[in-house]
Design a protein around this nucleic acid. Sequence first.
RNA 1: GAUUCCGUAGCUCAGCUGGUAGAGCAAUACACUUUUAAUGUAUGGGCCCUGGGUUCGAAUCCCAGCGGGAUCACCA
Length: 562
Amino acid sequence: MSQELSEQELQRRSSLSKLRELGIEPYPAATFSVSHLAESVKADYIENNHVKMAGRMMSQRIMGKASFAELQDSSGRIQLYINRDELCPSEDKTLYNEVFKKLLDLGDFIGIEGTVFKTQVGEISVNVTSLTILSKSLKPLPLPKVDAEGNTHDAFTDAELRYRQRYVDLVVNPGVKDTFIKRSQVFSVMRKAFDRFGFLEVETPILQPIPGGATARPFVTHHNALDIPLYLRIANELYLKRLIVGGFDGVFEFAKDFRNEGMDRTHNPEFTVMELYVAYKDYEWMMNFTESLLEEIALTVCGTTDIKVGDQQISLKAPFKRISMRDAILEHTGFDIADKTEDQLRDICKQLNIDTTPEMGSGKLIDEIFGEKCEPKYINPTFITEYPIEMSPLCKRHRTNPALTERFELMINGKEVANAYSELNDPIDQRERFEAQLALSERGDDEAMFIDQDFLRSLEYGMPPTSGIGIGMDRLVMLLTDNQSIQEVLFFPQMRPEKHVTLSELDHQILNACSDEPAPLADIRAKIDCSNKQWDLSVKLLTKNQLLKVIKLEEALYIKKA
RNA sequence: GAUUCCGUAGCUCAGCUGGUAGAGCAAUACACUUUUAAUGUAUGGGCCCUGGGUUCGAAUCCCAGCGGGAUCACCA
């Protein structure tokens, strides 16, 4: 595969071969032992300390016989001072004059050795006595510059390019790295917390014969050997509960789930959920557990429970507010949804200007009212409790009111961050709930649940009272890193594939040999040195992409540019 | 899926009611031994997203397509 190279890329390739001519390997194999990172050198300043560092050269200021450059490693940047006569004490000044000044480009990986000092302006720098090229960069990085007031110029901001080439984004935009470091910290705080409680981290199938545990459109694939359809999981809930049946007291999984639905600022086709199930607990316990967990996460990751999200100031200090769904709707709409029939609820929706469809059951209608009128209002963390039974098919009936369930969702910044139940462990009730879902789906609700017979069988053997929770990790990270878009917290968000025709060297040769006037195909073929197979492949590709046209005139074939 | 905005140099962007392409940074060359958005002088660099149309003439106007952003709908 070859493509047109820009002038800058050609120059870098020529520097590459000049380095080799000087006997310098631009991609050396040997270990380069690093003694210090940029941040640590700056944080613990020791005059004249000898250091060995490695990273990308991100800027270069050449001033004759001395120069400054910036080295960027995984921790940050540090300034290098390169003095010709200190780098090259002997008569041979090639390393400075040729290699450093001419053949090094911004973005190249270099290793240096030198001593730490402060410049006249007070910047901690390394006086370089030894310079090694570790890897040459052949494409120029987009290089933002920061001025004295801290304004960034020419920042690499194009969202498409940033997501498609995250590796460049990470090199060039320091905030991006921080987001992902925090993401990793969130996971690690949670793991440590669960570990303290003795919960077991488990893995359950991603390929499932029945996509259960949630309501969503799944991705389907096919298993050849078994000749059956398999679904990428939309949730792992039913498998984790089987493990509780099996006798584990606490199990959790950081799970990638997959849903074949729309993509936008808050939805990616694959996303990460942490699900936790704890035996002998109820949803009240889970609320207490959740608020202290979130508080701990905020303190560790952000250093405070007061976080800024967009224009909002949010406090993640426990305890969080708790309100039942009925009271929430009463508070924000004035309507009491208790003991209302489906028709009465439909009427309330009408009065509130909420669109409804005939397929919606009462659970869905209440969900609409809440989602429309209440959900966006809960900026500070709030547990919404006591969901109607119709919208919670896996959740235990409320201990005092059988029309409700022992469920809560945690709302932060007007969005759902967690969803938890006292899990339904009555196998007969569970079967009935699945059947009710089936009835809904026959009514036209295409996201009602499938019935997982094996899961029901497991419940029939007996599952202890259990509380479970699912936390949307991507959205949690969005909150904690103040990002508005899920794409900003995923290294490689889903994108439409890049579509481009890449022409090989041979394709170009053939294309160049042809003109706008039809020429005998055999003549062109004779000019090109390649196998018949290669020729055939190239010409097919070129005609398919409408770059060439093959014409049949009387018995002979002619070829021309399209 | 709907609406809307955007696509010009490696990057960030100008380019008016159509007249053959501009800046800053980056690059190249030269000068310069503590600079820091280093500086000074000079130079090179463009399928103006793709394909049609209107026109003597299109980066510019029209249509279609591709890619992306935002909003809405569905969903977490």
